[in-house]
Design a protein around this nucleic acid. Structure first.
Length: 416
RNA sequence: CGGGAUGUAGCAUAAUGGUAGUGUACGCGGUUUGGGACCGUGUGGCCCGGGUUCGAUUCCCGGCUUCCCGACCA
């Protein structure tokens, strides 16, 4: 991508109304555009990051047999009434609307009921199970208070997977597999060492529910963690947990974390409420077992910004960066240098390297370097008159600041 | 939803009961050219409604917006 073609521009100052680091940096660098409180558009750079995160999640979900689909944002009322979750008293984040004939509709804040309702048409026998389906969907939640930039919005992208089983054993076994898949996801996203699986709190499903919490100052949760990071307990269940584990509270220290995943087992609850059953080997009707598994894709993006961003701007883990290489062209007013830089860009791209090429002729070096730091692309490769003369490229690793001088051959070996 | 703030140009800000200044960004001209350089010049603005007043961006009332704290958060 030629930077001169990007419609987004970097800016020196963040809007005064953004306090969250993630929103400040993402807006300054041109990855997101704020539309209203808790609602952000993803511009081309931001979308690429989002898609990269999704792809990692997608690969891991596929690896445990998940089949991707996409449900709808418009939800019929009756399906949610079957489980008692249409009521605003029970679910206070509903956006509701009406068809022109006054039929009430809900805008999906989650999809358990939607999935189960759909699956009633496809699941008839124990031979049809298990089934695991997932989607990336925009969830709409009428939060009383949006906050923390893209980490808690009213509209956000979530990966939600649902697994249906004939038996509790099968569900439990699959659930454990997904826990491992989730660990791989966070590992690949670069936050594996800082992410903990904890018992979730609240509701009737506490003991069947787990959260994935990543250390993050901007998070809303508090985890009690021991020195070796082997024990991590959610503050909300602290007293019960330390009693159970037999550990003293003094050995744990509170740390702020952000919830990046939440998984839970419904068991047969939804199947019973919605009368979704299958025939077992004896020909008896049995309610399906259901478990669900969520990852907040946009929130994860925010967490990565919060964790890795520094005073100069964004710092993306290589696995999710919008581009791998930021090719920064200097002295481009010199046609000879420009041709050469263009050639490097073309060849790197042809070699399969994702390159953002700062081909702006009028921008000065200082501005380009500042932009490069702000954009957070993992590797900056400088092409300049100086470099052309000595046949070398300056390669700077954004995260560490490490500087290398590579020949053109080394450059291509390194990056393709 | 309770509490506290907030609203002036694309962005960041200043002053003001008599229609608004600066920085940045943007346009044009010129000098520069490895860390947001400089000179000149130009374009562009008072959240909405009502009230007080000769006159309101300013004061008052209401609304809306955005942010923060709390509550909430399958």
């Amino acid at each position: 991508m030629r930077q001169s073609h990007l419609f987004t521009k970097t800016r020196k100052e963040a809007p005064a109304d953004e306090v969250a680091k993630n929103a400040q940096l993402l807006i300054r660098a041109g990855y997101v555009h704020k539309v209203m409180a808790g609602v952000y558009a993803y511009t081309p750079l931001g979308l690429r990051v989002l898609e990269n995160i999704k792809q990692i999640v997608r690969e891991e979900m596929n690896a445990v047999g998940g089949q991707e689909l996409i449900m709808t944002s418009l939800q019929p009322k009756d399906v949610w009434e079957e489980t008692g979750r249409w009521s605003d008293e029970t679910v206070d984040v509903w956006f509701k609307t009406k068809l022109q004939d006054d039929t009430e509709l809900g805008l999906a804040w989650s999809h358990e009921e939607a999935i189960v309702s759909m699956m009633a048409q496809y699941v008839h026998s124990y031979k049809d199970l298990p089934i695991s389906v997932y989607q990336f969907q925009t969830k709409l939640r009428n939060e009383l208070r949006a906050k923390s930039g893209i980490m808690r919005g009213r509209e956000f992208v979530m990966k939600d997977m649902y697994s249906l089983h004939a038996t509790k054993e099968d569900m439990d076994e699959y659930y454990d597999k997904v826990v491992e898949a989730y660990k791989r996801i966070y590992e690949r996203l670069g936050v594996g060492a800082d992410t903990f699986v904890t018992f979730a709190s609240g509701g009737a499903f506490t003991k069947f529910s787990h959260e994935f919490q990543t250390l993050c100052d901007a998070g809303e949760d508090v985890l009690y963690i021991d020195k070796d990071k082997t024990v991590a307990v959610n503050e909300e269940v602290l007293d019960d947990a330390i009693a159970e584990i037999g550990i003293s509270k003094d050995e744990l220290s509170p740390t702020k974390t952000a919830e990046v995943g939440n998984i839970f087992k419904f068991g047969t609850e939804k199947g019973e409420q919605m009368n979704v059953t299958f025939k077992d080997a004896d020909g008896m009707d049995k309610p399906i077992y259901l478990a669900s598994y969520g990852v907040g894709i946009t929130r994860v993006m925010g967490v990565l910004v919060e964790k890795f961003g520094d005073d100069k701007g964004l710092v993306w883990p290589e696995a999710v960066a919008a581009y791998k290489v930021h090719l920064v062209g200097l002295n481009l007013e010199d046609a000879e240098i420009k041709d050469w830089a263009d050639g490097v860009y073309t060849n790197l791209t042809k070699a399969g390297v994702e390159v953002l090429y700062d081909d702006r002729i009028e921008a000065r070096a200082g501005e380009k370097f500042s932009d490069s730091d702000l954009l957070g692309v993992p590797y900056r490769v400088v092409v300049s008159k100086k470099g052309k003369e000595n046949g070398q490229f300056e390669v700077v690793t954004r995260a560490t600041g490490e500087v290398r001088q590579l020949t053109e051959e080394e450059l291509f070996t390194d990056f393709s």
